[in-house]
Design a protein around this nucleic acid. Structure first.
Lengths: 108, 108
DNA sequence: CTGTATCCCTCGGGATACTG
DNA sequence: CAGTATCCCGAGGGATACAG
């Protein structure tokens, strides 16, 4: 423990960059529950626009977090799901969620 | 587990708002190592401007993460430190740092 | 249904200078 | 030393329309 200065925040900030988009954490969470289509994601994230949803998905895909699978049908059908990497990131996020629930939402 | 949709990302996003500033995670980390004065923080975070450092500190203070203690001396001396809450948040951030080190920095 | 293409606009952050 | 006061800028997002 107590690694040299830099060891902690370096990894943390690199990670924060990956999920820095406004809706990315939510996206990660939704896809952790079940894979979903573009329209399902849009409905699951009320307020997000198509442009931003598409952009976030592309970024998360290129970051290796999300897998995109296009089925060649009519009407078009595209399934988005979390990669194992995306899954593990979502799990690494859980302590933050727990902290927020305990200290911010203060429901109990 | 598998709480109802919303339970996870809700707390997570609330937390993300707290540390959303560009330098806040670093600030949290630096202050977790030792309390420090304004000038020390500035030097510890090469590239940050005084304006942004001051703004971040004020926000983190009002969020209950940081404690500010002004000593009435000349020259002026102000000590910043982490509150227990700030400390616990820094700890909740550690899994994210570990994840980043393992999957992003890929040093090994 | 699954996206692109534009246009617009806020706001977080940088540069710089100045003050108690 | 520890900040404020201005001015500026670009990126990220929102709204809307259109396309395959």
């Amino acid at each position: 423990m107590v690694p040299r200065p830099g060891a902690h925040e370096c990894g943390t900030e690199a990670t924060m960059d990956l999920i820095g988009g406004k809706w990315k954490v939510s996206l990660l969470w939704v896809l952790a529950q079940r894979s979903a289509r573009f329209g399902e994601l849009r409905r699951a994230l009320p307020g997000i626009t198509e442009k931003v949803l598409a952009a976030h998905l592309r970024e998360m895909e290129s970051g290796g977090l999300v897998h995109r699978e296009a089925h060649d049908e009519v009407p078009p059908r595209v399934e988005y799901s979390l990669t194992p990497l995306g899954c593990s990131l979502n799990e690494a996020l859980e302590p933050l969620g727990k902290w927020g629930r305990e200290h911010l939402l203060a429901t109990g």
